[in-house]
């Protein structure tokens, strides 16, 4: 039944028609991909960056959140061609010599249970905190994370962690 409904093009071979050059986590990357791939599919299946998660795949859950030119976006709804030439940051780019303050606070608050939503939340929270550049309230965090679903924690510890991280980041900037 399903096979009959599918247009013939769905079963055609998929040539890597696009040659993309992007900056991913600070590194220049050249990668070939089929034209109908999303940025998420390029990250996960061409670059092996499997931190960004494929959840609902239609923009509801936010598990695929990455930063494109500094803005938190859904990589499952970004075409690979739209990300071409842009700067992409994924959760893999977050940890350098030390954990990022948001990661550190999430760890200390035990703000992840199954952890599937965590990469998306880290990306959305980092983009938000670097944009506002100050300590934030719980309400502001809830608003900023309104596109990231978590089905385990009930959000309390996640919000605690991000409020804590915002205070640390604001203090570090002042020093």
């Amino acid at each position: 039944m399903l096979a009959q409904l599918m247009p013939a093009r769905d079963k055609a071979p998929m040539p890597d028609a696009l040659l993309l050059s992007m900056k991913v986590n600070g590194e220049d990357v050249e990668v070939a991909a089929p034209a109908h791939f999303t940025l998420l599919e390029v990250l996960r299946y061409k670059l092996d960056l499997i931190g960004s998660k494929q959840g609902c795949d239609k923009g509801d859950c936010g598990a695929c959140t990455v930063q494109v030119d500094g803005k938190a976006k859904l990589s499952c709804l970004t075409l690979a061609a739209q990300a071409n030439g842009r700067e992409v940051r994924t959760v893999e780019g977050m940890t350098a010599a030390h954990l990022h303050p948001i990661q550190d606070c999430m760890d200390k608050e035990v703000a992840a249970q199954c952890g599937f939503c965590t990469p998306g939340i880290l990306m959305a929270a980092e983009a938000y905190l670097s944009k506002v550049g100050r300590a934030v309230s719980r309400e502001e965090v809830a608003e900023a994370l309104a596109g990231n679903l978590c089905r385990c924690t009930g959000y309390v510890k996640i919000v605690d962690a991000i409020v804590g991280a915002s205070e640390i980041m604001a203090n570090t900037e002042q020093d």
Binding site: R9, D10, M14, A17, A35, H36, F37, D57, A81, Q82
Partner: peptide
């Protein structure tokens, strides 16, 4: 996982 149908892209 939801796959997109096959298409070409243009970025004018």
């Amino acid at each position: 996982m939801l796959r997109l149908p096959i298409f070409q892209t243009k970025t004018p």
